[in-house]
């Protein structure tokens, strides 16, 4: 079993009126089967309202399933006694950095997580040190978080999650509010955690460029997983993605357009280097 596994996972949002009668039911997750191996870098795509964030909240035991089962690190999330261990195994980074920062000083903010799960004081400071180093924010340790840029705040939030030493981190659109530089830094931090510490990463995003370096991609729609594969496999299906309100990286799109116009450019181009090579071959 992988670090995150779901079987027939269903989540219904039920709205009730004042007399407790059911007004409407929205199925946010519709029999999702997922198996993520430890150490992978996974990307999840899907348009607004496709169920991505609902899935993320299940991984962190913030929601409980209507039907089906989800296991995190082998633990059934629906078991009451597993809730805290699950949250220790799976950390989460949200979209808005301002909603995740609570302390007045960067290092205290990073220490908040481990302190809450009962890590001894000595060890807390070691972990803070390591985590801040991992996101390259050590030099801001004594700063006030509200003076930092969006990307820096988001990296502090990541360090806070890191300090709890989870095996897996779910990033729910961590770059949506950041400028290009902030986006690059946060993405780099996520990849470094994955590569050097072996942390399993689940990245939920609307930016197709951020998906290019993932190991595996899941595409969601109406609460179902409708496509899965490597980035190259997924982005070869340009028209299909567009029909699902998604997109492909700019270079893939240009390659696709050139191919449509009759140039012999291969399928599945993801990066600028690959496109340049293909174009120079045509010449």
């Amino acid at each position: 079993m992988g670090i995150i596994k779901t079987k027939g996972l269903v989540h219904d949002f039920i709205r009730r009126d004042e007399e407790d009668n059911v007004e409407s039911i929205t199925t946010a997750l519709d029999h999702v089967d997922l198996d993520v191996k430890e150490g992978q870098f996974i990307a999840i795509l899907g348009h607004n309202g496709s169920g991505k964030s609902t899935l993320a909240k299940h991984i962190n035991a913030l929601l409980s399933a209507t039907e089906g089962t989800i296991w995190v690190d082998g633990m059934d999330v629906s078991e009451e006694e597993n809730v805290i261990p699950v949250r220790k195994s799976a950390g989460m980074v949200f979209q808005n950095p301002d909603n995740q920062i609570i302390a007045n000083i960067v290092e205290e903010d990073v220490a908040f997580g481990p302190e809450n799960i009962g890590v001894p004081t000595e060890e807390i400071w070691e972990r803070v040190e390591k985590s801040l180093g991992a996101v390259r924010m050590t030099k801001y340790r004594n700063h006030s978080p509200n003076k930092l840029s969006g990307g820096q705040k988001q990296r502090v939030a990541i360090a806070g999650v890191m300090a709890m030493e989870p095996k897996c981190i779910v990033f729910d659109e961590p770059t949506a509010m950041l400028d290009p530089n902030g986006r690059k830094d946060v993405l780099k931090a996520a990849h470094e955690l994955n590569e050097t510490k072996g942390v399993t990463v689940l990245l939920i995003t609307h930016y197709m460029e951020e998906v290019v370096d993932a190991d595996y991609v899941y595409v969601m729609e109406n609460g179902k997983i409708i496509m899965d594969g490597t980035p190259r496999e997924i982005f070869s299906r340009v028209e299909e993605l567009k029909a699902h309100r998604l997109d492909v990286p700019q270079m893939t799109l240009l390659a696709h357009e050139l191919r449509q116009a009759g140039l012999p450019i291969p399928q599945g181009i993801l990066t600028r280097e690959e496109l340049i090579e293909a174009i120079m071959k045509v010449k």
Binding site: G46, H47, A176
Partner: peptide
Amino acid sequence: TAGLDPAGR
């Protein structure tokens, strides 16, 4: 367009 999916953008 912050936070919107590609088609929404």
